[in-house]
Design a protein around this nucleic acid. Structure first.
Lengths: 208, 203
DNA sequence: AGATTACTTTCTAAAGC
DNA sequence: GCTTTAAAAAGTAATCT
């Protein structure tokens, strides 16, 4: 009877200790990178499920918490690029990505496919662009999807290029670098996507 | 003109990984001394690395007499490489049998479905599929029979890995093509715009 | 702006840490 | 789990001219 009590106490303690650790780590990530509160709550729920299915065994709390947050942000339609997330964690990109794949496979969760449109508002917000520019950018992405130009491409790069083209069409233009930095990709990627989209969608950019 | 439609999938073997049991223990230190081209850093990796040229095949040779050969594009090159390696070892102080047991462990093949693929739709309709364009441009598809993993790209190009035989590769590629075709996610350029490829009439 | 090189993903065995 | 080897796909990235 004593052994039973000890076992139960030990299990509860380790589960709770791990969960509290994860909650603290998620709280730290929220304040350092400005993640919306609902994402943290969703991440906690994902982490709880991971703990119940014993997916955290042999893995660091940091890596699993980061993976849960990455997944939560995508589920709530406010994605953060994995490469941005890992700048705030001590866990390696490799391990966070591995945890994410584990969560994808083992939990019965549906994570919506990464959509360039979701990155448009982030870029527009950072660069303080108008609603008209955003509207045009979204239209460009939708046409690109129909034309089959988005398969395999980084959604952040596609969004950056679409917003770049949209702002060129609306007059006030900024450098490709501004869009690249806002989207977290290189200028080369913005340029490549821009050329591809402009040519395939036959978009004429006004020269000024 | 008759063969213009439904070209079907094609593939090519790119790499064969095989294990070889030489059956005798080897003195890697001695081998490394006599073979200056060999790489041997036991602190980094327990195997001695030998690279053959024409064809370019690499071998990892272990103290236990077991060996891993990589880089062969066909079984003939693999067999020849094993013979060359055995001779090389025997010419440098080892005494291994001339015809050791060779086991193919993994075959990597590249290929094409000869049709573009709607990866987003494919990811939704296939089980055991993962498509994360933020991390990798290809859709990762785990096929259970034969047990292989196929990387599928928007262009229709594919990579099949994990197969133990050339037949597995051929079967996997054809099965993948048939499955994607029935899901309606394969597209060919012509025929009045991006239209689902027409099913081929079987007699 | 290119060109080059290099890294991402998948697989597999080997022996040892 | 990691270390090493080979190979392809297509995208992104860093570095050099």
């Amino acid at each position: 009877r004593l052994r039973k009590w000890q076992t139960r106490a030990r299990v509860q303690t380790s589960y709770e200790r791990n969960f509290v650790q994860a909650a603290q780590e998620l709280e730290r990530l929220k304040s350092s990178m400005g993640v919306p509160r609902p994402c943290v709550e969703q991440a906690l729920e994902i982490y709880r499920q991971a703990l119940e299915k014993e997916l955290v065994r042999g893995r660091s709390v940091e890596a699993m918490a980061a993976a849960a947050l990455y997944m939560a942000c995508r589920m709530l339609k406010t994605p953060r690029p994995l490469d941005e997330l890992i700048r705030y964690t001590k866990a390696s990109r490799r391990e966070v990505a591995r945890c994410y794949r584990l969560l994808l496979r083992e939990l019965n969760v549906r994570v919506p496919i990464s959509d360039p449109v979701l990155y448009i508002s982030r870029v527009a917000e950072q660069l303080k662009l108008t609603g008209d520019v955003v509207k045009t950018a979204i239209d460009i992405i939708n046409r690109a999807k129909k034309a089959g130009l988005t398969a395999g491409k980084d959604p952040a790069g596609l969004a950056a290029a679409a917003v770049y083209i949209a702002s060129l069409l609306h007059g006030d233009n900024r450098t490709q670098k501004d869009f690249a930095v806002a989207a977290g990709v290189t200028e080369v990627t913005v340029r490549n996507r821009y050329k591809e989209l402009a040519k395939a969608l036959d978009i004429k950019i006004p020269v000024k | 003109m008759d063969s213009s439609r439904a070209a079907g999938p094609t593939h090519k073997i790119e790499n064969i990984v095989a294990t070889v049991n030489l059956g005798v223990e080897l003195d890697l230190e001695q081998l490394a001394e006599r073979l200056p081209v060999a790489e041997y850093n036991p602190d980094q990796f327990p195997g001695l690395i030998l690279r053959l040229t024409r064809p370019r095949i690499s071998a990892l040779i272990f103290r236990t007499g077991k060996m891993v050969c990589t880089g062969a594009k066909n079984e003939t090159d693999l067999k020849n490489a094993v013979h060359a390696l055995v001779k090389l070892l025997n010419d440098n102080g080892a005494d291994v049998p001339l015809n050791p047991e060779v086991q193919v462990q993994n075959i990597v093949a590249s290929g094409s479905l000869n049709a573009e693929v709607d990866l987003e739709q494919a990811a939704l309709l296939l089980d055991n599929a993962m498509y994360e364009p933020e991390q990798f441009p290809g859709l990762i598809y785990r096929m259970t029979e034969p047990r292989v993993v196929v990387l599928i790209f928007g262009s229709g190009k594919i990579v099949c890995t994990g197969a133990k035989s050339e037949k597995d590769v051929a079967v996997a590629v054809q099965r993948l093509y048939d499955r994607l075709k029935e899901l309606g996610v394969l597209y060919v350029e012509e025929g009045g715009g991006a239209e689902a490829e027409e099913a081929e009439e079987e007699e």
